[in-house]
Every structure is written in structure tokens, then in C-alpha cells.
Amino acid sequence: MTDITNSPSAEYEAQLGDYFALLKPRVMQLVVFTAVVGMLAAPVSVHPVIGFASILFVAIGAGASGALNMWWDADIDAVMKRTAKRPIPAGKVQPGEALALGVALSGLSVMMLALSANLLAAGMLLFTIIFYAVVYSMWLKRATPQNIVIGGAAGAFPPVIGWIIATGSFAIEPWLMFALIFMWTPPHFWALALFMRSDYDDANVPMLTVTHGRPSTRKHIWVYTVLLAILAVGTAFTAIGGYIYLVTALILNALFLLGAYRIWNRDEVMAEEDNYLVERKFFRLSLYYLFLHFGAILAEASLKPWGLGGW
């Protein structure tokens, strides 16, 4: 038993909410949503209890990798405005606690997913946690300006895991959903990096804005958005697509391309004048973009039993 008089954090006792914040709840929402879509878009139905439990364990696994990321990145989080209030830099949670929580929840989530769903889904979850915590956080994030591109893969795995929970095997469709998130991540984060101007510079994170400059980042956003639009609209003509998805994809990608084109055709002087309004709008649109694409996939899958979804 610990004597409370010797506790190093006697002034502040971490509350449950502080530990929950370590799990990156906002990222968890995206993980849960895309994993649910992956699971429901699969041609095999899942018992609601098994589905609920499995998605919960995927969410816990994602949260665990978030805690490990916060443990490793505490030094740069403290420097960046956007992340300075996270539990470790704010002094609410000790780094060791975050590490312990991350490791414990990783083990628990992988084991439980193996029991509730199948070994392949559990293996994919373990791979995702390692990919995000080790490959992205520990290795690529501070080493290459392509950090966001490759790191985006970690956030793209949940629909694949969701699909495997239902089917127990791989197929082409979940990898299309993977590709959608994978291609969406770079323009989403580069737009953020453009208007969170000095954050990544201060933290010495080799973001594209720091290593290749802002004009190059604007060009990269445009190129990735063009590739993303081709992929997103093309997905409409696969087994997970249909009329609803096609209309959604056409509207959203037209808007997204327009935003990216405007970003590409601006310079810093123009952006400073309106306080990065175009970049901020593009970033906000990117959130709806992903949500609505996956919403459309879900709508197609949900309507199939009535003979309405799909082609």
C-alpha cells in the first residue's frame, strides 16, 4: 500500500477522465464507426452481442495504442499548443501510468477479441497497435516527412478488422475502405499542419510543411485529393457501392477537389490575410467527408436485405 504522504502527485490525483483522455476518445469514435461499417458491410451477419463486444475490444485496443503514443510523445506534446493539455504534459498522469495502461489494455483487447470474434481479427488488432505505437509513433513520426502517409495506415485498419470479425477472412472490399482512409489522412493532416503554423516546427517533427515548405505541402494536398477522389468514386462500382454511395461520393469529392484546388492556388500571404479560412474549411469538410462516405457504405449494406442497397 502506498503512503499518500509520499505520493509524487499529492497536489493532483488523476481522475478517471484523465485516464480516459489518454485513450484519445475522438480517434476512438472514428475507429468504432469505421469498424462497425466494416463489420456490417460484410456479407456475414454477426450476433449483436458478439458484434458489440468485438467492436468494444477494437475500441479498447485503439485507445491502448493512443495511450502508448501519448507516453512516447509526451516531450513533443508539451511543446505543441494543440497537444499541451494532454494528460501527461499537463501533469495529470505520470508517463509510467500511461505506459502501463497502454500495455495492459493492448493485451486485454487482443485476447478478448480473439475470444469474442476470431484469431485473425485479434492478430490484425495486435498488428494495428504495434503499427501505430511502434512503427508510426516511435519510428516514422520523427524520422520522415512521409510520417502521416504511412502512419495513416494505422487508422485505416479498423474497417478491415470489422470485416474480419464478421467473416473470419480477408476480401477486397475492406481493403477499399482501408484505402479510402489511407488516402484521406494526408490531405486531412496537411491542411491542419498549414493552419497550426508553428506547432510542428517548434516540436521538430518533420512534417511536410517543415521539410519541404508550404507551397510543396499545398501541391501534395492537391495531388493526394485527386488520387483520393478517383478511389472514392471508383469504390461506388464495387460490391460495397451503389446509387446512394455514388451520389454521396460525387458531391463530396467535387467539394473536396474544389477545396484542395483553392489551397494549391494560394500562398502564405493570401492565407495570412483571411487567417487560413480556406484551409480550415477544407479540414472541417474532411471530417464530414470520411463520415459521410462510410455512412453511405453503411446505408447500402443496411438496405440490402430489402433489395434496395447496392447495384
Binding site: 499518500i4 490525483e13 488523476a14 481522475q15 478517471l16 450476433h47 458478439i50 468494444l56
Partner: peptide, 30 residues
């Protein structure tokens, strides 16, 4: 400090109880 810790302990307790219930239901379904 006991008052502050109480909230946290109750929260952990509820989560553990929820976990136990989930495992029971999951086992039953399986």
C-alpha cells in the same frame, strides 16, 4: 483525498462489474 479517490474507485468498480456482465453474456451467447 478519500473523497477525491472515491469517485475514481466507484468508476473502476462499475467498469469491472460491466466487464464481468459482458463476459457472462458473451459466454452465454457463444
Amino acid at each position: 483525498i478519500h473523497t477525491r479517490r472515491k469517485g475514481r474507485n466507484v468508476g473502476v468498480g462499475i467498469m469491472l462489474a460491466g466487464f464481468v456482465v459482458l463476459i457472462m453474456v458473451l459466454t452465454f451467447v457463444k
